[in-house]
């Protein structure tokens, strides 16, 4: 009982941290590009962004969504849809620069939409866990 209370506080802080990380990432993106199309990056330029995010975003997604294992408030199907949407949007968001680098520059308009959609799904996951806490 004592440990679960402590873990509840730790998880609540984790969710706040996650919200702040996502917010600062979104602010960083729009500070660099504004609301227009992102600039095409060199191979080195997009790898500098892609590589740390491939490590950080899926680890964060795994850690945060595994808390859903401990609640029966949501169906297994809903949990799988949420996690699938998170992983799919991470892949889409991070692959845009690759498509642009390979010559398909018009796909750049999807990037701001993907950033906003990904933030919304992160918020949904955080909210779902906060409700279950």
């Amino acid at each position: 009982m004592k440990a679960s209370k402590h873990f509840g506080v730790a998880i609540a802080y984790f969710l706040l941290f996650l919200a702040a990380v996502v917010d600062s990432g979104v602010a960083l993106y729009f500070q660099e590009h504004g609301i227009g199309l992102p600039m095409r990056k060199s191979l080195e330029g997009f790898l500098e962004i892609l590589v740390p995010h491939l490590a950080a975003m899926d680890v964060s997604a795994f850690v945060v969504t595994h808390f859903l294992l401990f609640t029966s408030l949501y169906s297994d199907r809903a949990k799988r849809i949420l996690y699938g949407a998170l992983l799919g949007l991470i892949l889409l968001d991070q692959s845009i620069y690759l498509w642009m680098w390979s010559g398909w520059e018009t796909i750049g308009w999807i990037k701001p939409l993907a950033v906003v959609a990904l933030s919304a799904v992160w918020a949904a996951v955080v909210w779902a866990i906060a409700v279950a806490l």
Binding site: A10, Y13, F14, F17, L18, A20, S24, A56, S60
Partner: peptide, 16 residues
């Protein structure tokens, strides 16, 4: 913003 973004992520993992 880049410093803050990195600090928040590393801080989150360390604290957790």
């Amino acid at each position: 913003l880049l410093w803050v973004h990195i600090d928040l992520f590393i801080g989150m993992l360390t604290v957790l």
